[in-house]
Amino acid sequence: MLKFTEDKIFTKEQVQELFLSVNWISGQYPDQLYKALMHSSTVLTAWDDTRLVGLIRVLDDTEMLAQIHYVLVHPNYQGQGIAGKMLELIKEKYKDFFYLEVMPAESKNAPFYERHGFHVMEDGVPMQIVQKK
């Protein structure tokens, strides 16, 4: 049975293994990734006993805006509804905020978020500066 928690009880190695399992470049920077997660507003994790199998990271301003930054599930656990369950828990936590935003890493993931009530921003254009590679 899976357990979900906001307690930041994960190790640097557990986080790195999860991120590398889905080929996310963040996993190549374990020190920075771990520090970023430990200083994030919310990190919701999914556990199969002692194995970290899913994670959502949220950055928020405490009142109005919350941005979902990571949603990932280990490939061996995908297709079991874990990401959807985590997303619903996050939606409940942030239900009193004006905005809960997500920017899917790939457009093919947009239907997943739409099934959970998200809509494409009408006049929004995602933009970023990549400082390091």
Rank of each mutant, 00 (worst) to 15 (best):
Q128F: 10
Q80V: 10
S41I: 02
M64Y: 14
E6W: 11
E17P: 01
V125Q: 11
V125Y: 14
F98H: 11
K132I: 01
Y99L: 02
G117E: 08
D61R: 05
T5N: 08
V58P: 05
M86A: 04
L87Q: 10
Y94T: 02
I56V: 15
G117V: 04
K95L: 00
E6K: 02
N23E: 15
T42V: 00
F10T: 12
A105L: 13
K3D: 04
Q78P: 01
Y29E: 08
E6V: 08
V125M: 13
K133S: 02
Q14E: 06
H119T: 07
I9S: 08
A46M: 08
D7V: 14
M38D: 09
G84A: 15
Q78K: 01
G54D: 09
Q78R: 06
E114R: 13
F19T: 02
I129S: 05
A46F: 11
L52K: 05
L100S: 12
I68L: 11
E106T: 05
V15K: 02
P104F: 12
E106H: 08
T50F: 13
A110E: 02
A105W: 11
I9A: 07
D49H: 13
G54W: 06
D61C: 09
G27H: 04
M64R: 03
N109M: 09
H74L: 08
S107G: 00
Y70G: 01
I25C: 00
M64F: 15
A66L: 09
D60C: 00
Y34T: 08
H74E: 04
E114Y: 15
I129M: 10
D123F: 10
F19Q: 03
Q67S: 06
G54I: 06
K133A: 01
F98A: 10
H74M: 06
D48Y: 12
G117Y: 10
H39S: 14
Y70E: 07
E17S: 04
S107T: 00
L59K: 04
I56A: 12
M127Y: 02
K85T: 14
D48A: 14
L59E: 03
A105G: 15
L2F: 14
V53A: 13
E17H: 05
D123E: 07
S41A: 11
V120W: 02
E63H: 10
K108I: 04
L20W: 05
L2K: 03
Y99I: 00
K12P: 02
L44P: 01
F4H: 09
H69K: 09
V53W: 13
K91T: 06
Y113T: 00
V130E: 09
K12I: 06
H74V: 08
I56P: 07
